[in-house]
C-alpha cells in the first residue's frame, strides 16, 4: 500500500469516527455498529473520491470559515435592518464581474457562497462572468467578492 493511501485512510477514518461519536452523542454501546458503518463509509469514500484527486488545504479552510462566519453575521444583520426599515431603504441593482479562478468547481462555490454574504445573491454564472443581484448598490461589493475569491482560491490550492 502506498503512503498516500495510508494517510488518506488514517485521516478519513479519524474524521468518520469523530462524526460517529457526534451522531451517537458519545454512547459507548454504539461502537459495534459504528465500526461497521465507519468501515463502509471509508470504503465508499475511497472508491468515490480517490485520495489526492481534490486536495483542500486545511489552513485555507480555516481562514475561509472565519471570514464566512463573520460575514454571514454581517449580512444577516444588514438585511434584518433593511427589512425593519422596509422598501424605502432598498437600493437594489445588478452587477456583472469577472472571476479569476481557473477551474469551474471553485467558481461554482463562489457563486453559491455569495448568496449568504452581505448584500449579494448570484443570478448567473457563465464561464468566468458572474452576474449578481445586490441589495444596495452603494456597498463595496466588488472588493468583497475579490476578497472572498482569494480565500476560496487558497482553500482549493489555486493562485489568483
Amino acid at each position: 500500500m502506498n503512503p498516500v493511501m495510508m494517510i488518506a485512510i488514517l485521516r478519513r477514518g479519524a474524521l468518520l469516527s469523530f462524526l460517529w461519536w457526534i451522531l451517537t452523542e458519545g454512547r459507548r454501546d454504539a461502537w459495534v455498529a459504528g465500526f461497521v458503518a465507519i468501515g463502509a463509509a471509508l470504503w465508499l469514500s475511497l472508491r468515490l473520491c480517490a485520495p489526492r484527486s481534490t486536495q483542500i488545504s486545511v489552513g485555507g479552510l480555516g481562514a475561509f470559515l472565519g471570514y464566512f462566519i463573520w460575514n454571514s453575521v454581517r449580512g444577516g444583520v444588514q438585511v434584518a435592518l433593511l427589512a425593519l426599515r422596509g422598501r424605502r431603504a432598498l437600493h437594489p441593482g445588478t452587477l456583472e464581474l469577472q472571476l479569476n479562478l481557473a477551474s469551474p468547481a471553485p467558481r461554482i462555490f463562489v457563486a453559491n457562497v455569495l448568496a449568504l454574504m452581505p448584500g449579494t445573491v448570484s443570478v448567473r454564472l457563465n464561464g468566468k462572468r458572474l452576474r449578481l443581484h445586490v441589495i444596495d448598490e452603494r456597498m463595496p461589493i466588488v472588493a468583497e467578492v475579490k476578497a472572498l475569491e482569494v480565500l476560496i482560491a487558497r482553500m482549493f490550492g489555486e493562485r489568483v
Binding site: 469551474p104 468547481a105 461554482i108 453559491n112 448567473r124 454564472l125 457563465n126
Partner: peptide, 13 residues
C-alpha cells in the same frame, strides 16, 4: 442542483 447547473452551464445556458 449545483452539480447539475455546473454540467449544464459548461455546455449551454
Amino acid at each position: 442542483f449545483a452539480r447539475r447547473a455546473w454540467h449544464a452551464g459548461e455546455k449551454s445556458d
